[in-house]
Nucleic acid binder design. Sequence first.
DNA 1: ACCTGAACACCGTTCAAGT
DNA 2: ACCTGAACACCGTTCAAGT
Lengths: 187, 187
Amino acid sequence: MTEQTLVKRARLGVSDWIAASMRLLVTEGPAALKISRLTDTLGVTKGSFYWHFADIAALKSALAAQCEAQQRAAADHVRGLRILPATERLGAIVDYVSEPRRWAAEAAVRSWSHTDNSLCSAIAELDRSLHEAIYQAMLDLGFAEEDARTRATMLLYAGIGYLHAAEQSGPPNADTLHRFVALSTAR
Amino acid sequence: MTEQTLVKRARLGVSDWIAASMRLLVTEGPAALKISRLTDTLGVTKGSFYWHFADIAALKSALAAQCEAQQRAAADHVRGLRILPATERLGAIVDYVSEPRRWAAEAAVRSWSHTDNSLCSAIAELDRSLHEAIYQAMLDLGFAEEDARTRATMLLYAGIGYLHAAEQSGPPNADTLHRFVALSTAR
DNA sequence: ACCTGAACACCGTTCAAGT
DNA sequence: ACCTGAACACCGTTCAAGT
């Protein structure tokens, strides 16, 4: 009864569908992303949906794009940190990605990607971007190319693994990630 | 390889359905777990499925139980390696988990767990077991408790992160994991 | 005990027709 | 430009009837 079914707008735009989808995704997870759920909350029929989107994959793509935009912003932010000295830079990257809201969004997208292949490329891109940033920091710290690559790869994967593990065991612990940095940059 | 797809038995048992489900899960992921896919490969109609299982959730539960048994067996195997010297032991753990068939099963179960909470505890148990084994190896190598714990945590998460990343980018590379071992045990 | 075949509900999808 | 309403395909589910 608390739905906005009664607040039926005369006309809907793509952004209305995306917004409703985002709300569903965040509150009930990817499994709730059904056309019928959307038409219920928006107060229209399913035919309406197909005026705005080719199919449900298109809706999910658009939703994913929204998430990707946030991720790109994250990647940009990380790249912007390159003015910092390498050690502080790695610390700043860790602080940034472990910020609770970012962390939650990251976990949600990665979790969603397991049932939606369209998201895989976006995630791969962010991972590549992060790896590049970390690799560069390792180089700046004076490690030889191959050593730097291995250290960067391990640090990145440790972060991703930690994210997946923490997904069901509570909030992130920035301290743990900082220890990973220390270990992966030790001589 | 027992390809019984075309060999239509006169009668099927629960184990036949589970086996076919496991094959589908590992080769095509949880999304392929459809009754119609199973009846196609087993050469029966959907009504047959409902003689053996109450619904598709029951099939998935039974499959999950099978997966959990495998996870437990894996944990036991890792615990059994403790007789080896620490360095060889870590190498043996890496070789064991990166064995292609185990790796594929592991990736499938972890991927599936994102949409099936019943699997989370089994995975957490294996992770705990792996962490304990790796931690013990670090202690045996002479690292102090807290340092050993951090090194073990990072190595474990790097492996998990690598598994998730490799899930969509091809087969595992044991060499990469061995380099992670070298890095996380470096002084 | 195990299976078929027909039926039904649900959801994604299409499209001609309405405003 | 945006939406309705009816149709259809696909998949999970039920069940009476067959061996």
